[in-house]
């Protein structure tokens, strides 16, 4: 029986702790989309949506949906006080122009240099779609990738060089997975935390590039004490 890794919700919960009070934040598809539910109570952040909203609130309650007020995943949402609407051009002035404090995206592969591949699996059917991911990756002041440490078939997703089509080069600052928190630094990947019950060696075994760590690696903490 393999040891239990963190769930997607727990990855989201850990990622939410990276959000500083007052930050302007964009969350991508997949695990990132779960993060808003876990923002600590003493932290206020403002969510950006690339279709032209700053200050997006929770999903609209059943019966209160307004289909002119949707997030980038087409889900009817609400606003928080101080929210603003703007065009798609202005939405991407914010992404590409380096105005967003933290962006959190899903990932298919991240390289040891922080290259991100997250929009297409080679050989997949259909046309694929880039959406806003390239603009967001290039412009974010800090880019976090949340993903499972391994693909469904066990392939390692933290790799020396991405083999999947790239989203952007040298863009990722931190990777949060079901096994670890890893920072991308000029000296390579640094293992900051390991999931409860996992040793640094076990995390290393599931990661292609060398992870740097010394001594005891702290356990991933999922919520503030």
């Amino acid at each position: 029986m393999p040891k239990a890794r963190l769930t997607r919700e727990q990855i989201a919960e850990r990622a939410a702790l990276e959000l500083p009070d007052g930050a302007y934040v964009n969350l991508g598809w997949g695990i990132p989309n779960l993060i808003a539910a876990y923002v600590p109570k003493d932290v206020v952040v403002y969510f950006h949506s690339e279709n032209g909203i700053l200050g997006m609130g929770p999903r609209a309650k059943p019966g209160e949906e307004d289909y002119d007020l949707v997030d980038a995943m087409k889900v009817p949402v609400t606003l928080v006080p101080g929210a603003a609407y703007f065009s798609q051009v202005d939405a991407h002035v914010m992404t590409r122009g380096g105005h967003l404090d933290i962006c959190i995206l899903g990932g298919l592969q991240v390289s040891e240099k922080g290259d991100l591949a997250n929009w297409r699996v080679p050989g997949a059917k259909g046309a694929g779609g880039i959406g806003g991911a390239m603009d967001i990756s290039v412009g974010a002041k800090r880019l976090i990738v949340t993903m499972e440490h391994n693909a469904k078939d066990g392939q390692r997703k933290i790799v020396k060089t991405c083999s999947f089509p790239l989203t952007a080069i040298e863009c990722v600052n931190t990777i949060i997975t079901d096994l670890a928190v890893i920072d991308v630094t000029a000296d390579g990947l640094v293992l900051r935390e390991a999931a409860p019950g996992f040793t640094p060696e076990e995390v290393q075994a599931q990661s292609e590039p060398k992870l740097r760590y010394s001594g005891k690696v702290p356990e991933m903490v999922l919520r503030k004490k």
Binding site: E50, Q88, H92, R96, G126, A127, G129, I130, G132, D135
Partner: peptide, 22 residues
């Protein structure tokens, strides 16, 4: 669209969204 794309009946230029509007 996806059917016609897979069949090679329609051409696609895929553009990052912010670049599309810029």
């Amino acid at each position: 669209f996806q059917q016609q794309f897979d069949a090679g009946e329609v051409e696609l230029e895929l553009v990052p969204q912010g670049i599309l509007c810029e």
